[in-house]
């Protein structure tokens, strides 16, 4: 571990590499994280199958690759199909748990996660799959830092998607309705907003965002039916740290976790890369709790 720290100090370019890798991948985490912040904030659903939606999105890209279409072109299809899928899931399952107590949605979506994982496993087998972007890698500083173009492209796509979502939330009727419902569902209903429709739309939108993230992930990392859980955990870390309805916070938290993972993997060893995520989750929870208890004391 000390050796690794030493190495970082001796070769500062390595820090740049890790930082870049972390930010590029963090941008994708931000998408899934924002989706979770949306459903959590608007409809109070803790969606534990967030990661499974990401993986499902990835399989679209993989499939496109196998039939000779560039995987990135799968994104519109994935987004539309997953939007419809999310709508159906909302109607069939989520609408029945949305107003129940907090644990209910967590467990129901956990059940859903198991079904999706196994469904993917039955459909595509447990092999690790990838989608090939076919793009090149660029070297900087004499090859000491490499940036693959696909990472950069996906970063740009993430930015575009995020801006679109922001514009949508600000300007469209549905976006405004979603924000109104998030503030006060009952008041929104009184004002004539069909909150059930808003919920369905929000949930479907989340699925679509996750699918977009999945398409990008499959071109950078690898996907497998059982890889969803870590993506879900990352989303939870991001939302717990950033809170809901706070897009800058989500983006910052996502970059943070992306970078922390890279440095964690480098310094502590790759076997602790995932433990780093979980560790950050616990730290964030404890930190929040400390804030809360201070507030409670202040109130008392």
């Amino acid at each position: 571990m000390l050796d690794n720290l030493n190495l970082l100090a001796l070769a500062p370019l390595l820090n740049i590499q890790l930082l870049l890798d972390g930010i590029f991948i963090g941008a994708i985490f931000a998408l899934a994280g924002y989706g979770l912040a949306l459903v959590w904030g608007v409809m109070n659903v803790k969606n534990l199958c967030q990661g499974e939606y990401v993986i499902m999105g990835g399989y679209f890209a993989w499939y496109a690759g196998t039939i000779g279409i560039h995987p990135i072109l799968a994104m519109p299809v994935a987004v539309v199909v997953m939007f419809g899928f999310g709508w159906v899931i909302y109607r069939v399952i989520i609408s029945r748990v949305v107003d129940k107590d907090m644990f209910t949605s967590l467990l129901a979506t956990f059940g859903l996660a198991i079904v999706i994982q196994q469904g993917l496993n039955l459909a595509f087998g447990p092999e690790v799959q990838i989608a090939q972007s076919g793009l090149e890698t660029r070297s900087f500083f004499d090859g000491a830092v490499t940036v693959s173009e696909i990472r950069f492209v996906s970063f740009v796509i993430c930015c575009v998607l995020a801006s679109l979502i922001v514009l949508f939330m600000k300007n469209s009727r549905m976006g405004q309705a979603i924000r109104a419902t998030a503030q006060d569902a009952r008041a929104a209903r009184v004002m004539g907003i069909d909150t059930d429709r808003v919920y369905a739309f929000t949930y479907a939108l989340n699925c679509a965002i996750c699918a977009a993230a999945g398409v990008l992930i499959s071109m950078i990392w690898v996907i497998q039916p059982f890889y969803g859980l870590t993506h879900s955990i990352r989303s939870f870390v991001i939302v717990t740290a950033a809170g809901f309805g706070n897009l800058p916070g989500v983006i910052l938290a996502a970059f943070g976790i992306g970078v922390a993972e890279q440095f964690g993997g480098f310094i502590l060893g790759a076997e602790l890369q995932q433990a780093t995520v979980v560790g950050i989750l616990l730290l964030v929870l404890i930190w929040r709790q400390a804030l809360m208890s201070r507030r409670r004391q202040a109130l008392a």
């Binding site: 029945r96 467990l107 129901a108 059940g111 859903l112 198991i114 079904v115 196994q118 039955l122």
Partner: peptide, 13 residues
């Protein structure tokens, strides 16, 4: 496992 997931969901719902 699909059956298990479905049981949990139905149970909850």
């Amino acid at each position: 496992w699909v059956a298990l997931g479905v049981i949990i969901i139905l149970n909850i719902m």
